[in-house]
């Protein structure tokens, strides 16, 4: 069974956001790029399944410019077999999904994993869009995956409710936390091997987008925090009711 993990290249989650000169993007100077945390967990699970002999090949794909290659190399160093980069600066989730759909049309996969969202644009759209464009069976909010004799056991978790499903490929799974606990990190040997693993660059087939960012701003600053003495902590409850009027 072949698995495709869709990878988004995002700023490290500790990044302090600075608005770029065009007011439409953030200033990327000095930003440390990482694998989107949900994609990283999805990749980790895919590699665990490969180690267990249940998956034959793990492929990672990204839609982005050359800047994302470090992230793809890291995915290879972590254990992915090969990488595909669709060369374009994506305008929105639609551009990403339509280019990924071409990748899948050219090379079918049994399982496609997409993180539930990316920590930059928080669109939560690429997985569902991709499934829709391919008219593929898809399962959302997946927090567990196992494979036994080509049969997939999938765990979903929504608001504390758990559901166990059985399905088979081809299927697209939208991955949330819980799928793997600790993200796998590259070993020294992995880093050496990654240098010679295939990283295929394909040209984008579509640059169409449905949305456009008009302006990016920072949220308004918070006012001053009102301090209350710890001995008198109950006072906060009164203030919430009488002053803030939210209780």
């Amino acid at each position: 069974m072949k698995i495709l993990v869709c990878i988004s290249n995002v700023p490290d989650t500790t990044t302090k956001i600075v608005i770029g000169a065009d007011d439409k993007n953030i200033n990327t100077a000095g930003i440390q790029w990482i694998i989107n945390p949900w994609d990283e967990l999805a990749l980790t699970r895919a590699l665990e399944l490969k180690d267990a002999g249940k998956i034959s090949e793990v492929v990672v794909a990204n839609v982005g410019t050359a800047i994302t290659e470090a992230t793809l190399r890291k995915s290879l160093a972590t254990g992915a077999d090969r990488a595909i980069r669709v060369n374009t600066e994506p305008a929105d989730a639609w551009t990403v999904a339509s280019n990924l759909s071409e990748v899948v049309k050219n090379e079918p996969f049994d399982i496609i994993l997409c993180g539930i969202e990316s920590s930059d644009h928080n669109g939560s759209s690429v997985g569902g869009l991709l499934a829709g464009m391919l008219d593929l069976n898809f399962i959302s909010s997946v927090s567990g995956l196992d494979i036994e004799n080509e049969k997939l056991t999938v765990q979903r978790e929504i608001d504390g409710e758990k559901e166990i499903l059985e399905t088979q490929g081809p299927v697209l799974l939208v991955i949330q936390k819980g799928i793997a606990i600790v993200p796998r990190i590259p070993s020294m040997r992995g880093i050496m091997q990654a240098r010679t693993k295939p990283l295929q660059i394909v040209e984008a087939t579509s640059s169409e987008s449905m949305t456009e960012t008009v302006q990016v701003t920072l949220p308004p600053e918070k006012g001053k925090c009102k301090m209350i003495d710890a001995e008198n902590a109950g006072e906060v409850i009164r203030l919430l009711r009488e002053e803030a009027k939210v209780l």
Partner: peptide
């Protein structure tokens, strides 16, 4: 929420719709 985020993008693909979450 989880349900909206699951279904809306698939619907968007079918309608060729732009989607704005959050």
């Amino acid at each position: 929420n989880n349900t909206g985020k699951a279904i809306a993008p698939f619907v968007a693909a079918g309608l060729k719709a732009g989607i704005a979450t959050g």
